[in-house]
Write a protein that binds this DNA or RNA. Sequence first.
DNA 1: TATTATGTAGACCGATTGTCATATTCTGGG
DNA 2: CCCAGAATATGACAATCGGTCTACATAATA
Lengths: 202, 202
Amino acid sequence: MATDTRTRMIEATALLIRKRGYHGTSLNDILSASGAPRGSLYFHFPGGKDQLVIEVTRASVADVTERLGAALLEESDPAVAVHHIYQSVGRMLEENEFSLGCPVAPVVLDAPNNVPDLIEICRSAFEQWIGLLRQAFVRAGVPERRAQALALLVESSLEGLMVIARATRDRTPLAAVADEVAALVEQAVLAGGVAHPAKTAV
Amino acid sequence: MATDTRTRMIEATALLIRKRGYHGTSLNDILSASGAPRGSLYFHFPGGKDQLVIEVTRASVADVTERLGAALLEESDPAVAVHHIYQSVGRMLEENEFSLGCPVAPVVLDAPNNVPDLIEICRSAFEQWIGLLRQAFVRAGVPERRAQALALLVESSLEGLMVIARATRDRTPLAAVADEVAALVEQAVLAGGVAHPAKTAV
DNA sequence: TATTATGTAGACCGATTGTCATATTCTGGG
DNA sequence: CCCAGAATATGACAATCGGTCTACATAATA
């Protein structure tokens, strides 16, 4: 039974942070959302709110990492995989009426600087996600350097789109960017097997 | 002077919100940062914190809009202009030791849902910025639809990069994505004036 | 029954927001 | 030069909320 209360707390907190950020989520919110009594929080998380948020963020990141990795592995063409990823983010936003975003962004923008563990978790989250994307591109023949740039482009645009879509309550930007980026990835894959990539700008 | 205190409050709040978000910024923080006493806040902003944040966000958005518009006008080649924009965001991040981000994102992720004015300001901010980018691309000969997709890509990646760079305390992702996106814009400009979006212009 | 592991309740205290009565500064008219 | 009154500034105050902690209750075990 212990774990039940504990996991309910973690899940409730994960949702609330994605909705309202670190400071926007109070213990009262967490308790009423998880139906747990006040004191239980300090039994399960002696470190208080910070410890709870750290565990929540760790779990959320692991979840995203797993799903991102799976999505990239089940499609051999990374352009298709990338397209799927944008679609699934769009679906997630719509299903939650645009009130939910990335679990990491609110922590980065909102969290107190005096919790180094939390910042490290966020840093490593982005590193992992970008790394997964880069690897997928490399596997498809894109040169390392270009693969990294594309991975950054995909990850950053997704992160940004989650913010923009939340403000505009509109899913269509996701689709437009998905097309553009998928085409670019496709092009990089084709160019990667052949000569050298177009890298010059201006 | 009255306006002096008022503007100092607005400027202090703008900074704090970009650093720590809506809920992470307390009235005490604002007061001590602006050197104003408590009561003055409610004299200048009878609506309290919400009114203050609304005015602050409006001002910040106007500022960004103005600078973005100027950056896009002073360069005829939008690829170059886009490159400059990424650079200037990177510079801003570095100069502030990666503790500052977009003024709108924290409000979107963090703000209370019961202030519709605030949400509307954020929605319209993204609309304006994307519109400015789209117009610049259209002026350079990119078809409307493609221009919109590219504008979304630029804006979303910038927004995302500000979050990622803050977590990683690293400016290099900005440069990598800037190269990639500028090349893509260049390509779209070349293709736009001509016939069809064909192969890569190496 | 005694002891320990697990879970709960609510008191505590500082922080936060918003209000108010009073002080000070500014302004123009006599 | 002074004064009336409008505009602005001030910090003490109340109400609420937030996070933390200690004392208590229950269940399992020996």
